[in-house]
Amino acid sequence: MKRLVLAIYLLFLLTSCGSSFQGFYNNHKADLGVTSFQVPNFMKSVLSTLSPEIKHSIGNISDLKFIKFDNLNAVKRQSLITEMNAVTNNGYLDVFRKNDPDNTRIISVREAGVVVTDVIIFNSSASQTTAYYLQGNFDPEKIKSFADEDTFNAFSNDVMQHYKMNINPSFNPENQ
């Protein structure tokens, strides 16, 4: 019995230590009620259409992933928060963290010297949970601005609007 408990504990420890945002994204992108996208290299022009205010606040983006969960029950929401904690505990530094029963907001970064290279912005409320992963070269002070709910919401709305405007759901040239 002790061996079984030890084996389960070791398995949990090994899987939680190897957590990444890509793993989190891959594990949940097909969940019911989820909206997700990642911007592949051939669609980098989408990133250049962000509003000047948002581009100024975040800087140079080379990779963007987004995932949004709607209609979560309390258990699933807590599970997502726990998973995101495992991801951000894997080489990230918290710039901002707010853990309230009604709202959990996490902004975690990886740095290379004085430049932020990776950013995770996670926001979870009773009505919805969203997570962004940004890779590029960012000014740390500008990343801190996402702790403000209005800045975060403006960024989310701008990215979603521009992404929807710049995708073509049909790869068939006759359906354009």
Rank of each mutant, 00 (worst) to 15 (best):
Q135M: 12
N153P: 01
S79E: 11
S124D: 03
F37E: 08
V95D: 10
F12I: 02
T151F: 10
N27V: 00
M1L: 02
C17V: 07
T82G: 03
G33P: 06
S108G: 11
F146K: 02
N157L: 08
Y133N: 09
I167H: 07
F96V: 03
G91Y: 08
K68G: 00
I120Q: 09
K144E: 12
V95G: 05
R77Y: 05
F37Y: 14
S127T: 13
L80P: 06
Q161H: 12
G23P: 11
M84Y: 04
V119E: 08
F96M: 07
Q176A: 05
I8A: 08
F155Y: 15
T151A: 14
Q22P: 03
Y9E: 11
N157M: 03
F42C: 12
R97E: 09
V87N: 02
A147G: 14
L32I: 09
R105Q: 15
K164A: 13
L50W: 15
P140V: 10
A74V: 01
G91L: 08
T129S: 04
T117S: 10
I143G: 04
G91R: 10
L11K: 11
L64A: 12
S48N: 13
D158K: 07
P40Y: 12
E111W: 00
F96P: 01
N153Y: 06
T15F: 13
K65W: 07
Q78N: 15
S156M: 05
I58V: 15
